[in-house]
Design a binder for these strands. Structure first.
Lengths: 196, 196
DNA sequence: CTAATATACGGAACGCTGATCCGTTTTCCA
DNA sequence: TGGAAAACGGATCAGCGTTCCGTATATTAG
């Protein structure tokens, strides 16, 4: 497969100074463009914003997913690390799950087009989906299992299923006053609670 | 806006015979291509399948949405008409709502990429979204209101909200054994029932 | 400090897709 | 049957992703 193996935060030694500089410049430019034009913005737009050639962006981030992952790595990590913390501090496992889901939902809603990209079958977004799943599903699983164990939630729903459901609910323009993803995510969580 | 005003089923009089023939040919070709390549299949592919030029397809269906709407019109109508019938025959309003939602879900799940298209901000899919909303939201509203009136569901959720939530849950590859849209839709419906 | 070499850069170029536009062909009616 | 109106076909333009290679730059050996 293609390179998710990049480690932009702690770049390998021996790289040329200009390469490292460009890498940072690109990340900043991409972050800025993602905010205004969404994660599906034309590569050329990002390259232009960074003031580099198209070749450079492909060299550093062979796949669109690599770039997106690099840009949002911090926040995904934060979300992942919040899981155990919330579980330890919240009043109940379900409360922790709720808080975590809120975190996750906010993340998706505020990143223009990210939820779409996670499900998009087109583009080079496969690695993005994989990264999210690998990093967050275990966290979600822990919260979910704990909530089942505490009897606050009925068993039978897997962490991937839940996360993808939430992700899907966050797809689409988020400026629409008639559709608030958070409300529906809440409904979904209610559905997980045993009514009887 | 662009033409959803086409009425392919009862074509306006005065149209030329070859035009009518091509219209039908195109609908058939599009239906076939949609099954194999999804509703986002290249226009050229549909044109080729129908044995017509690109110009012809654009003349008959200026927007991608026009073509999709024309292809699925029958099924959308059927779904719309099923609403009142179910409400009249089911054991309870909630039962009717459930059955209708199943119908709607099946429709989306079996039409490759349709759910995606309904939310896609790109492409000429706006009219598609509009058509679905105009035709089905009132039906859903009737079922929803009845269910609220019967006390089986908590108030506060709008028909558009619900339908879009369901639509969103149906987005993505439906061959994935780890994600069954129907299960999550069911969860959402459970969430609508008053837990207390 | 300079030369040699690896490394990185830039952007031209190719393929695919959507959309338009106009010369040609077909239909149909007077 | 002749000719205008309607429809057709596909060449063509524009946008985007992706590849590729000649050129420029950093690094290091001497």
């Amino acid at each position: 497969m293609s390179a998710t193996s990049q480690s932009p935060e702690v770049p390998a030694r021996g790289k040329r100074a200009d390469a490292l500089r460009n890498q940072q410049t690109l990340l900043a430019a991409a972050a800025a463009v993602f905010v205004t034009s969404g994660v599906e913005a034309p590569i050329r737009e990002i390259a232009a914003r960074a003031g580099v050639g198209i070749g450079t962006i492909y060299r550093h981030f062979p796949t669109r997913a690599d770039l997106v992952v690099a840009v949002y790595r911090h926040q995904v990590e934060a979300c992942a690390e919040a899981g155990p913390t919330l579980l330890a501090n919240a009043a109940s496992p379900l409360a922790a799950l709720r808080q975590w889901v809120d975190l996750f939902t906010d993340f998706l809603v505020t990143k223009h087009g990210l939820a779409n990209a996670l499900q998009s079958d087109t583009g080079g977004f496969d690695a993005l989906h994989t990264y999210f799943v690998d990093r967050l599903v275990p966290v979600c699983a822990q919260l979910l299992d704990a909530s089942v164990d505490s009897g606050e939630i009925v068993p039978g729903t897997g962490p991937y299923e839940l996360m993808r459901g939430i992700g899907n609910l966050c797809i689409g323009r988020n400026n629409d006053p008639a559709y608030d993803p958070r409300r529906l995510v809440d409904l979904l969580l209610r559905g997980l609670q045993q009514p009887r």
